[in-house]
């Protein structure tokens, strides 16, 4: 049985202009210990899919799916009280903007401790002890001193490490990373990706990596889902995808990589749009 299984997920938002379909029937499965990358540009619905899975979308959204199970539990019929027990504990998420996702008014020690108190019921010294261990695990130097630091006193890379520490505090079975390195420098990106992959391998977590960066996909993923405009274009193993992309959109994405550029101009997705409509007889 898969760790996470989603079949035919659709999400609609009510807007003043009528309903807007952000996701038009996508499937995801993640096995234990597997890294799934969801690739697509902004507006392709990759974040919406994960927020829908976690039940974090606003009330204007209508979520429908044929199957939506996590670790044997049906997420569709879970009450919000039960859902809250799962989310943040067995499924956790880290976001793109590390500095914006931490609360500026509290120390990082307090914020990590809060997770431990809420989900694991730890108290007093145990919280402090575990928090220090977590900060150590994500590679923050002198964790005892860092407990009393505020987010603004740390760099972006360090804040992302704190976010990761919070996300893995309860030994989740599935970690969702939404563009975890987009706001960071390449050298820091490398460190954060290495850290995520190390933790993932050590704990045999399922990891969903949401990204628009094919470089990140190449460095981390086992399997890849390519998404465009709320639809799934292609799903393949990472090697297969880079070696022989089947869908024209995937081919367009790969050829737009500057390091793969041939000649003087980069192919763009509008070049792909004409190819797509020719091959599939569909307009974009």
């Amino acid at each position: 049985m898969s760790l996470l299984e989603i079949r035919n997920l659709t999400v609609e938002f009510d807007t003043a202009m009528g309903p807007f379909r952000a996701l038009k029937g996508v499937d995801y499965t993640v096995e234990k210990g597997e890294v799934l990358a969801i690739v697509g540009e902004s507006g392709s619905g990759k974040s919406v899919a994960m927020l829908a899975t976690m039940g974090l979308l606003p009330k204007t959204a209508t979520v429908n799916a044929d199957v939506m199970t996590f670790d044997g539990r049906d997420l569709k019929i879970l009450s919000s009280r039960e859902r809250r027990k799962v989310i943040g504990k067995d499924i956790s998420m880290i976001f793109q903007e590390p500095i914006a996702s931490l609360n500026p008014c509290f120390t990082v020690g307090f914020q990590i401790g809060e997770v431990l108190k809420t989900h694991l019921g730890l108290t007093g010294k145990a919280v402090r002890q575990r928090t220090i261990e977590l900060l150590q695990a994500v590679g923050i130097p002198m964790p005892e001193k860092r407990l009393t630091s505020f987010p603004h006193q740390m760099s972006g890379g360090q804040c992302q490490r704190v976010m990761i520490a919070m996300a893995i505090a309860c030994q989740p079975k599935l970690l969702i990373a939404d563009e975890p390195t987009t706001a960071l420098d390449v050298t820091i990106q490398k460190q954060i990706l290495d850290l995520l992959m190390r933790i993932q391998a050590e704990r045999q977590m399922g990891l969903i990596m949401i990204t628009h960066d094919m470089g990140v996909v190449a460095e981390t993923a086992d399997r890849v889902v390519v998404q465009y405009n709320g639809e799934q274009m292609e799903e393949a193993g990472v090697l297969e995808l880079f070696e022989a992309p089947k869908h024209p959109y995937t081919r367009a994405l790969l050829s737009a990589l500057p390091e793969r550029a041939e000649g003087d101009r980069l192919p763009t997705v509008s070049d792909f749009a004409s190819a797509y409509s020719k091959e599939d007889g569909a307009a974009l």
Binding site: D213, G215, F242, E259
Partner: peptide, 16 residues
Amino acid sequence: LAATPKTSIESIRERV
């Protein structure tokens, strides 16, 4: 240079 993600088939194959 070492930190820049590598997208060549060889490096992906190596990692997998």
